[in-house]
């Protein structure tokens, strides 16, 4: 049985996700998203991956959330207020999500007997992750660096073109 900490983290994560999507004010949504991602980071801590967890916080809360809030502020307030959700669409969405959840539940129930319930002892440190990244996964790292710089360039270009038109 899951303990209190786990349940609380689950509540924060899933609740944050729901707030992110359903809050009336989109800034609350952004904060909710940040909370949800923070909760996921807490799960990473729980899974003995502190490095990934801190990385997740740094990137998502430190960068992505700031970007999102910034974007929200660049777009006029009335635009967000026009947001309408049709009740039929919502029903369809809930049903589909439920279908996914149910099927995943079945899958998990079916395989739970074969899955280990106790984690194997972990010896992975961030040093080893660093070694792995810089040796055998170095091509991936380089490609990632390219993708990142390309996306930054793309973002800057988009913004810049706009400024010229103004």
């Amino acid at each position: 049985m899951a303990d209190i900490v786990f349940l609380a983290m689950m509540a924060v994560t899933v609740g944050g996700a729901i707030v992110a999507l359903e809050s009336r004010e989109i800034v609350y949504g952004a904060v909710g998203l940040a909370g949800s991602l923070f909760g996921v980071a807490a799960f990473f801590f729980l899974l003995d991956a502190p490095y990934v967890a801190v990385f997740q916080i740094t990137v998502y809360v430190g960068a992505v959330a700031v970007l999102i809030i910034f974007t929200v502020m660049l777009v006029r307030h009335e635009t967000w207020m026009k947001e309408v959700t049709y009740s039929l669409g919502r029903l369809v969405g809930i049903l589909t999500a439920a279908a996914i959840a149910v099927s995943l539940t079945f899958a998990w129930a079916a395989s739970s007997s074969q899955l280990p319930s106790v984690p194997v002892p972990s010896t992975v440190t961030f040093l080893q992750i660093g070694q792995l990244i810089s040796t055998s996964l170095s091509p991936a790292l380089e490609v990632l660096a390219l993708v990142l710089s390309a996306s930054v360039l793309a973002a800057i270009t988009l913004a810049k073109v706009e400024r010229e038109e103004d």
Partner: peptide, 8 residues
């Protein structure tokens, strides 16, 4: 990570 919270 913590310093990243201040801008928000």
């Amino acid at each position: 990570a913590i310093i990243g919270f201040f801008p928000i």
